[in-house]
C-alpha cells in the first residue's frame, strides 16, 4: 500500500483545467528548440518556392514601397524629410516599420493559422509566434543590408552628408524592442481573436493606422506641437527616431523615450503571455 503510494507520487505530468498564468514553459520550449528552428526554416524556404523571383522579393517589396512613398509623400505631398534624400529617409522608416508590422500581423493570426496543427498535437504553443519573430528577423537583416548599400551609394556618389554616431550601436536593442513589442501585442490580439473574430478585421487597418501615427513617412520634428505628445506616446516612435538618429544623425533622440518604449514592451509582453497562456489550453474548443 505505502509502496504503491510512493510509486504513484512521481508523475511527470499533470493535466488539469488551469495552468500557471505566468509560466513561460521555458524548459519545454528548450526541449522543442529543434522545432523552433524547423519552423523558421519552413517559413523561410516555403515563402519563395514556386515564385519566379524567389528571395529577390525581400528586396523588391521595400524598394517599391520606398519609391511609392517617395513619389506620393515626398514629391506630391511635399512632406519634409529632415533634409535627407527621400529614398534614404523613407527606406530607413520602411525597414524598421515592416519588421514590427510583419511580426504583429502574422503573430496575431497564430491560433487561426495553426488551428489544424494545434488541434492534433501538443507542443509549447509559444514556439509558433517565436518562430515568426525569428524568421522575420532574417527578412529584416536582408532589408537592413539593402538600406546600408543604398546609404553608401548616396554617400559616395551623391555626396550626401550623413553623420552616423555611436548611437547606431543601439540597433540590436531597437530590434529587440520591435520584436518584443510585435510579439507581445501579437499574442494579445491572437488570444482575443480566438473568441472575438472581430479583432481580425481590426488588426488589418489598425496596423495601417498605427503607421501613420509613427514617424515613418514624416520626421517627428515636423509634427505640429499639439500632436507631438500623441505621436511620442506611440512606443514605436522612439525606435524609428533612434534608428534614424544613429545612422543618419537626424531626428529626435531621447533616452527617456526609449526607456518608455522598453517599459511598454515589457508590459505588453507580460500581458500577452498571460493571456496567451490562458487561451492556449482551450482555444481548440472555440475555433
Amino acid at each position: 500500500m505505502t509502496k504503491a503510494n510512493t510509486k504513484n507520487a512521481d508523475w511527470t505530468m499533470v493535466i488539469s483545467p488551469k495552468s500557471n498564468m505566468l509560466s513561460l514553459q521555458l524548459e519545454d520550449i528548450w526541449r522543442y528548440k529543434d522545432l523552433l528552428y524547423l519552423f523558421v526554416r519552413r517559413d523561410f524556404v516555403s515563402i519563395y518556392k514556386q515564385t519566379i523571383l524567389g528571395p529577390a522579393w525581400f528586396f523588391i517589396q521595400p524598394i517599391l514601397t520606398t519609391i511609392t512613398y517617395t513619389i506620393i509623400f515626398g514629391n506630391v505631398a511635399g512632406l519634409s524629410t529632415d533634409g535627407l534624400p527621400k529614398m534614404i529617409f523613407y527606406l530607413s522608416g520602411v525597414v524598421c516599420w515592416s519588421y514590427f508590422s510583419d511580426c504583429i500581423t502574422t503573430i496575431s493570426s497564430t491560433f487561426i493559422a495553426n488551428a489544424q496543427v494545434f488541434g492534433k498535437v501538443y507542443f509549447p504553443r509559444l514556439i509558433a509566434p517565436l518562430s515568426v519573430v525569428i524568421s522575420k528577423l532574417i527578412k529584416l537583416g536582408i532589408q537592413f543590408l539593402l538600406f546600408i548599400v543604398t546609404l553608401l551609394y548616396y554617400v559616395i556618389f551623391e555626396s550626401t552628408e550623413v553623420s552616423p554616431n555611436i548611437y547606431l550601436l543601439l540597433s540590436p536593442v531597437l530590434v529587440l524592442l520591435m520584436g518584443g513589442l510585435g510579439l507581445g501585442l501579437g499574442l494579445l490580439i491572437s488570444s482575443l481573436t480566438t473568441k472575438y473574430r472581430d479583432m481580425r478585421f481590426l488588426i488589418a487597418f489598425g496596423v495601417q493606422l498605427l503607421m501613420y501615427g509613427t514617424p515613418v513617412i514624416y520626421p517627428l520634428s515636423k509634427v505640429p506641437e499639439e500632436y507631438r505628445l500623441l505621436v511620442t506616446l506611440n512606443p514605436i516612435t522612439p525606435v524609428v527616431e533612434a534608428f534614424r538618429y544613429g545612422f543618419l544623425g537626424t531626428g529626435t533622440f531621447s533616452v527617456y523615450h526609449l526607456v518608455y518604449s522598453f517599459v511598454f514592451t515589457v508590459i505588453a509582453l507580460l500581458l500577452g503571455i498571460v493571456v496567451f497562456n490562458r487561451v492556449e489550453k482551450t482555444f481548440m474548443d472555440s475555433v
Binding site: I15, S16, K18, T282, F283, M284, D285
Partner: peptide
Amino acid sequence: VTAPTQGQI
C-alpha cells in the same frame, strides 16, 4: 490539445 473542464489526468 485541449484542457479538461474539471478533473485531472
